[in-house]
């Protein structure tokens, strides 16, 4: 009798103790290591780029970033045209791809009849699966001639008063590069935007419908405004892709390191110059300069992402109130 009553609290106590915390500990460390390995990888890549470009950094200093001369024979290297080319081609890509992608995502989540949604989504995902070099080939043999013969002359005629659309037309150009990048970032922006629009609670839509809003009004006041932080994130993701896009751009942008206002003129991007020239980089300084181009690309990408995140925090959030 006594032993029985004594054993009850003991077993109760046993039940309070977690069966085994071993699994928990392992799980925690495993995920921690995984999470940090990403960070370590990024830091290692940055460090390697820095180390390999130290020769060029010492030799050219800050002039590497603000001069335009790229002369491997004379061993003079300035990366400004590449930075310019990367930023401008990405900007063109965003200007074209963002409205298209978001409109597509709105159509897919809000307007399209049910039966057509899944096939369209699959098509867009297929676009993302096309290898970059194939798009580049298509760019060289189909898109560029079409732009040269039809689109650019028309642009020159109608918008020629802008310095952006002046000068000789070669076909391969900054604008062609921007368009091909736009095609490449369309799927990612569309599918991320679509997920974000789908995550808008139906209650929000119903609130607007309940006030007698039309479909467009519902999309505007309930869906897009609710989703704007997320949509901004989708755009930033697309921009990150655009900055680093290499193969297809290299094939259509013309690969001429120059800074001119006209979008019909050929340009050059950071990623393209590395891809094109690293096999020819015979001298140490040349190779080191290419590494520094890589470092700059790395830096530009990270800076753009940070600025974008900062923008989201300061502008979108305060005016919107926290979206839960």
């Amino acid at each position: 009798m006594i032993t029985a009553t004594a054993s009850i609290p003991e077993s109760a106590q046993e039940r309070m103790v977690a069966p085994s915390r071993f699994g928990d500990v392992i799980f925690r460390w495993l995920t921690l290591v995984m999470a940090f390995s990403v960070l370590v990888l990024v830091i290692l890549v940055g460090w390697q780029l820095w180390r390999n470009s130290s020769l060029a950094i010492h030799k050219f200093g800050f002039h590497f970033l603000n001069t335009s001369k790229w002369d491997p024979v004379a061993e003079e290297f300035g990366a400004l045209p590449f930075i310019y080319g990367t930023l401008i081609s990405s900007l063109i890509a965003l200007v074209i791809a963002v409205p298209l992608s978001i409109a597509t995502a709105v159509f897919l989540t809000e307007l399209a009849p049910m039966w057509i949604r899944q096939p369209l989504v699959s098509l867009i995902e297929m676009l993302a699966a096309i290898p970059s070099v194939i798009l580049g080939l298509w760019g060289v043999f189909v898109m560029v001639p079409f732009l040269r013969l039809a689109v650019f002359p028309w642009l020159k005629k109608t918008l020629g008063f802008l310095p952006l659309f002046t000068g000789p037309i070669y076909g391969v150009s900054m604008l062609a590069g921007g368009i091909i990048v736009a095609i490449m970032i369309l799927p990612i922006i569309t599918s991320v935007s679509r997920e974000i629009l789908r995550s808008v609670p139906d209650l929000q839509r119903e609130a607007a419908y309940g006030l007698g809003a039309t479909r467009w009004e519902v999309t505007r006041i309930a869906v897009l405004s609710y989703a704007k932080n997320g949509l901004f994130g989708a755009v930033v993701l697309g921009l990150g892709r655009a900055l680093g896009e290499t193969m297809a751009v290299t094939m259509v942008i013309g690969n001429t390191p120059q800074i001119v206002a006209s979008l019909f003129a050929p340009g050059y991007t950071l990623a393209s110059v590395i891809a094109n020239e690293f096999t020819e980089a015979t001298t140490d300084v040349y190779l080191s300069a290419l590494f520094e181009v890589g470092l700059v690309l790395f830096g530009v990408t990270i800076a753009v992402n940070l600025i974008a995140q900062l923008l989201v925090k300061t502008f979108v959030n305060t005016s919107a109130g926290a979206v839960q």
């Binding site: 609670p201 209650l203 929000q204 119903e206 609130a207 607007a208 419908y209 309940g210 006030l211 007698g212 809003a213 006041i221 309930a222 405004s225 609710y226 704007k228 005016s319 919107a320 109130g321 926290a322 979206v323 839960q324």
Partner: peptide, 16 residues
């Protein structure tokens, strides 16, 4: 729906 207002199960003010 403009003539017939509606209040829902869960409150749904527009968050923005």
């Amino acid at each position: 729906r403009r003539r017939i207002g509606m209040v829902f199960q869960k409150s749904n003010p527009f968050p923005t």
